[in-house]
Design a binder for these strands. Structure first.
Length: 824
RNA sequence: GCCCGGGUGGCGGAAUGGUAGACGCGGUGGACUCAAAAUCCAUUGUCCUUGCGGGCGUGCGGGUUCGAAUCCCGCCCCGGGCACCA
């Protein structure tokens, strides 16, 4: 009978196995492993202290994949590291005076401890910390290679300055409403000399290669929109009376050329001064200073207003299509940063131009015939060309081609592809980041630090003050240096790199983290890359995932990574967020439910099972009081499994000679569960996989109550434990050890016997006019005629047929017969 | 405005053309117990009916089909992304 006191003790058992896995290096992998290789990776975290529920969810999915693949016979690379540069550590330093390194190392230890107590297994020998000099050295080395290859450059540019973070931001870090994604402050525009990485050189490749990636469609769409490719024509407009001045414009609608009734310059356009005549100078100046004063946010808030701000320059350009002069305006709805910063305006076929034309009383000429009764609106759709000279009568697509050919053959312009994507601004005026390894020499200009002098490390003796300048800029010892080229006095660059640079190649370093000759060897990268399964949050859909793709391509092209390696992540899974009360659960929202609360009571396995069962992995989860009750439920279930596994579940075991019907039923339940769980694991349907394990447990208990043979019961329990091993690894390991004295995690994943999984009988549904009227137990091999005869003989079905003869009988053996009788 | 998701019991969710609501949380009833906890069993969409049984039911309105949560058309609502990108 049940021994009181032998209840499953998750706390003791989990500690025991975590220690053992660690010591035995169960999940360490080395070069030359003969097993098929795979690489499973969770996005390395910023260390902000103990793990939160989002981490738990992430690492539960990751660990499940690692352990499942291991049981399937693969050598799985499963590394862990820390994205350990970043603003919070430096802000803490400004507030408390604690050095960012001290602060960060403490946070890393906290996170590492809680990750370990989750029972997630990693090859800790490969751990990476971005702020470790051995990692920084290669970040800087790669930066210099990029610089030498022209992929990193310095330029003066209007940049996004966040007054809260006291640094510039990449375009990707500015939200649609013009605020900083990190601090929420309204971003200002400043003009500074900054470092950029030439991601636009890869715009085409980054876009095209998306098609071949096994990624969520949603993420691919977001990247496509972000890259924003558009095809069209670029051509020159001659300024009337000033033959030497030409205005370049870009359009995706060259077919509308005859409908151009004005042209517009961005306020920052270099030709504004030249084109503005004296009598219009004042209004143009007013508009320009307004635009300059406004933040992006203000400028965008005018979007949609009918009154579009704009001023006439007094100049005219010639429309090359029809030779007519059209007025040139300056308006803030045209952006300097896209295309040429100037447009040909076609009000009839463009909403924005329409609004501007209406506001300023400019003519509107349709070049595409809208559908009948379309009304007084701009029409951007397809239709017959009209008022368009050589294009008249054509459709839009045909006319576009004709217009492009015409522009090119007359030497007026050319086909051109434009991207919305801009180069990646990587300079940050901060201390706690990787220093940009260059020196500014008054005679040699920008000179890269010599390879043997890497890494450039920031000094520790700096003052952390909220000045808006990197503490490095005021550290004379760091700043003053002799030029690596001419040995003359020079100044070190004091900006540091965006932390997204660190995270753009860490997955490559994981393949070969001990290498001190190169960031990683080609062989190691060839052995493990690409990552077979990458797992992380949707919030990185654009930033990190796009930068990492760019880095992989660039490193491959520079011969640093394998030539054939173009994409870092073959398969991506983006998990849902954990929300509470409608908002994302996070430290800044102050609504954290610390996982430690559960790890210290019900244990990691119950918490992991809850995360798996709560919702489909890709869905957002609302944390409610019910969630807590579900965790309790899983804790009870682990006890239920434990009793089953240790033979304490009941006294109903009988040992009859041979196999009886109950045994057959339980065996069928077992093999069906194996099929179900295996396919659910493969399609990331973990919530239904846990349900199938519950069902199998219930079946075992029911048969135990009725009396069941030892063999059938053992098969059920052993299969259950094997399938549980990737989900609740500690419970599975302990129970398996008790039963077999072996290590469960080196056992193979169970395979179902199709014969045993097969149904002995199935329920034949008898419908009359599509409504279920009877259920009959039949042999799965039942034939068409037999099924039909059985259904037509059904009393219950006949009762609903009246006197009518069946008009039709749909027979789908062995599951369904539908008898159709005429209405009435 | 445009582009993606999604809408199913009290709740989380299951079912991708064939028994709607698997599995769980919560509820109700029972067994065990001096009692409680734990455990085990049963029950739980809704309405009508003592019961047998029947009607209704997957956001709303149509359609296709022998048969629709599932496919098609039109709406409504919720979530996310993009948004003056020429």
């Amino acid at each position: 009978m049940v021994e009181v006191g032998d209840a499953y003790d998750p706390i003791a058992v989990e500690a025991k196995w975590q220690k053992r896995w660690d010591q035995e290096g169960t999940y360490n992998v080395d070069p030359g492993d003969p097993r098929p290789k795979s690489y499973v990776l969770c996005m390395y975290p910023y260390p902000s202290g103990p793990a939160h529920q989002g981490h738990v969810r992430n690492y539960t999915f990751g660990d499940l994949n690692v352990r499942y693949r291991t049981m399937k016979g693969e050598a799985v690379l499963s590394p862990f590291g820390f994205d350990s540069f970043g603003l919070p550590a430096e802000n803490a330093a400004i507030k408390t005076g604690i050095h960012p390194r001290t602060f960060t190392d403490a946070r890393i230890e906290e996170l590492k401890t809680s990750v370990k107590s989750l029972g997630a297994m990693y090859d800790w020998r490969r751990e990476i910390r971005s702020h470790d000099p051995s990692y920084m050295r290669w970040v800087q080395w790669i930066f210099l290679r990029f610089y030498n290859a022209g992929l990193a450059y310095r330029a003066e540019a209007p940049v996004n300055w966040c007054p809260g973070c006291k640094t510039v931001l990449a375009n990707e870090q500015v939200l649609a409403d013009g605020t900083c994604e990190r601090s929420g402050d309204v971003v200002e525009r400043r003009t500074l000399k900054q470092w950029f990485l030439r991601i636009t050189a890869y715009a085409d490749q980054l876009l095209d290669a998306l098609d071949g990636l096994d990624w969520p469609e949603r993420v691919k769409t977001m990247q496509r929109n972000w890259i924003g490719r558009s095809e069209g024509a670029q051509f020159e407009l001659v300024v009337q009376g000033k033959d030497d001045v030409k205005l370049e414009v870009f359009t995706t609608r060259p077919d509308t050329g005859f409908g151009v009734t004005f042209a517009v310059l961005a306020p920052e356009h270099p030709l504004v001064d030249t084109l503005t005549t004296e009598d219009h100078r004042e209004e143009v100046e007013v508009l320009r200073s307004e635009a300059a004063r406004q933040s992006d946010l203000d400028r965008q808030s005018g979007h949609g207003d009918l009154g579009k701000a704009g001023a006439f320059t007094g100049s005219y350009v010639i429309n090359p299509f029809n030779g007519e002069p059209v007025p040139v305006y300056v308006a803030d709805y045209v952006l300097m940063g896209y295309g040429t910063g100037a447009i040909m305006a076609v009000p009839a076929e463009d909403e924005r131009d329409w609004a501007f034309a209406k506001a300023h009383g400019l003519p509107i000429v349709r070049t595409t015939e809208p559908p009948d009764g379309f009304g007084d609106h701009p029409y951007g759709g397809n239709g017959r060309k009209t008022n368009s000279g050589f294009m008249n009568g054509m459709g839009v697509a045909e006319a576009k081609e004709a217009a492009l050919d015409w522009l090119e053959s007359n030497g007026l312009g050319e086909r051109k592809v434009n991207f919305r994507l801009r180069d990646w601004l990587v300079s940050r005026q901060r201390y706690w980041g990787c220093p940009i390894p260059v020196v500014h020499c008054p005679s040699c200009g920008v000179v890269g630090v010599a390879e043997e002098d890497l890494p450039v490390l920031a000094p520790d003796d700096v003052e952390f003050l909220p000045t808006g300048e990197s503490p490095l800029a005021s550290h004379e010892g760091f700043k003053k240096v002799s030029c690596p080229s001419c040995s003359g006095p020079a100044e070190r660059e004091t900006d540091t790199l965006d932390t997204f640079v660190d995270s753009s190649w860490y997955f490559l370093r994981f393949c070969d983290p001990w290498n001190d000759q190169a960031p990683f060897s080609i062989e190691a990268a060839e052995e493990w890359m690409p990552v077979d399964q990458y797992i992380g949050g949707i919030e990185h859909a654009i930033l990190h995932l796009l930068y990492a793709r760019f880095f992989t391509r660039a490193l491959s092209d520079l011969g640093i990574a394998p030539g054939g390696l173009k994409e870092p992540f073959a398969r991506l899974f983006t998990q849902g967020m954990i929300r509470m009360g409608g908002t994302k659960m996070s430290k800044s929202k102050g609504n954290l439910i610390a996982p430690s609360k559960y790890l210290e009571t019900v244990g990691a396995d119950a918490l992991r099972l809850s995360q798996l069962s709560l919702a489909p992995p890709a869905d957002d989860v609302d944390w409610t009081s019910q969630t807590e009750e579900m965790i309790e439920g899983w804790a009870k279930w682990t006890q239920r499994v434990w009793r089953l596994a240790t033979g304490e579940a009941g006294s109903g075991v009988v040992r009859p000679e041979g196999e009886n019907d109950g045994d057959t039923e339980l065996r069928r339940a077992t093999h069906r569960a194996i099929n179900k769980v295996t396919s659910d694991m493969d399609r990331w349907s973990y919530n239904t996989a846990t349900a199938a394990l519950r069902e199998l447990t219930n079946a075992a208990y029911i048969h135990l109550g009725k009396g069941v043979g030892e063999e059938a019961l053992s098969e059920a329990v052993d299969s259950l434990l094997l399938m549980l091993a990737p989900m609740a690894p500690h419970l599975a390991a302990e129970a398996w050890e008790r039963r077999h004295g072996e290590h469960i995690h080196t056992k193979p994943w169970p395979i179902a016997d199709p014969e045993l999984a097969r149904d002995q009988k199935v329920t034949l549904i008898v419908q009359v006019n599509g409504k279920v009227r009877d259920r009959i137990e039949v042999d799965p091999a039942i034939g068409h005629q037999e099924a039909e005869a059985l259904a037509l003989a059904s009393e219950r079905a006949r009762a609903h047929m009246g006197d009518a003869e069946p008009a039709k009988v749909v027979v789908r053996p062995p599951r369904l017969v539908n008898i159709v009788v005429p209405a009435g």
